[in-house]
Every structure is written in C-alpha cells, then in structure tokens.
C-alpha cells in the first residue's frame, strides 16, 4: 500500500507503529548533531529527551509523506522518565484534530513513546499546517 500524504489523513487515523533501538552509535550521532554538552555531564548512559521526541517525528515521517510547504507550528511534550542507551522504543502516533480552510490543513498529532517496560517515556502533541492536495515528499 502506498504511503499516504499527511494532509489526507482523517481525524482518528493511527499511523503504523514504529520501533527503534537506541544504539550507542545512534545516540552518539544525535548528541554530536545537536551539540548537547549537558546530557553527558549527567550520565553517559542517558539519552537526551529531545532525541526521543525526534524519533516521534521520524515515526510520523515513516508513516506518511509530508506535503511540500508543511510547517511545524507548535509542539508540546512531557518527558516521563529518563531513557537509557540500549532501550527499544515503540512509538505510536494518531491524528487527533484536523481542519481545513482556504486550501490549508491544520492538524494535531499525538505521540506516545513507550520504553522497554511498555510504559510511556514521552507523550507529545505536534501542530502542523500544510497545503491540501499536494503530493507528499518522503
């Protein structure tokens, strides 16, 4: 089945579950990319909380194509417990609101990231706007 464009997803749509193992290599790559000096000062085994949030976005992009011109308007997130290198995360994302006006879609997407213990480690909500009816890009 082709990957749908994000603007076409209805309210209530659940994106395919996405799993990701936090390897030490990936976490190192992320920490270098964001130049985070603070997390290493706490404990070398801890993962920056925004890395977990970034994986939420990755889950979204894995399940839907982003239309050209899409804009990230806002973001809410709650970090529920520290996450450590080596954990395997499971991410679910769901369209919780969708409105359309003058050719633009306004969409709210909720994210829930669960850790090895199947408990939530992060919950979040992204608000995006995007032109309706344009083919998405991967």
């Amino acid at each position: 089945m082709p990957t749908p464009s994000l603007d076409t997803l209805p309210k209530g749509h659940e994106l395919p579950p996405f799993a990701f193992e936090l390897t030490s290599e990936w976490v190192r790559e992320y920490v270098v990319a964001v130049e985070d000096d603070a997390i290493g000062a706490l404990d070398e085994g801890l993962v920056p909380p925004m890395a977990v949030a970034a994986l939420g976005v990755r889950a979204l992009l894995d399940g839907a194509k982003l239309p050209p011109g899409a804009i990230h308007l806002g973001q809410e997130m709650s970090f529920l417990r520290p996450v450590r290198v080596g954990e395997r995360l499971s991410i679910s994302a769901r369209v919780v609101s969708r409105g359309e006006r003058q050719g633009w879609v306004l969409m709210g997407i909720e994210l829930d990231v669960q850790g090895d213990d199947h408990g939530s480690v992060m919950k979040g909500r992204a608000t995006l706007t995007m032109p309706a009816g344009r083919a998405g890009v991967s």
């Binding site: 909380p49 804009i71 990230h72 806002g74 709650s78 970090f79």
Partner: peptide, 10 residues
C-alpha cells in the same frame, strides 16, 4: 528528564 514539560510555538 524525569518530568519535564515543554510547550512552544514556532
């Protein structure tokens, strides 16, 4: 990391 909350607008 254990209970932080962030709410922002771009």
């Amino acid at each position: 990391l254990s209970g932080g909350r962030l709410k922002v607008r771009f």
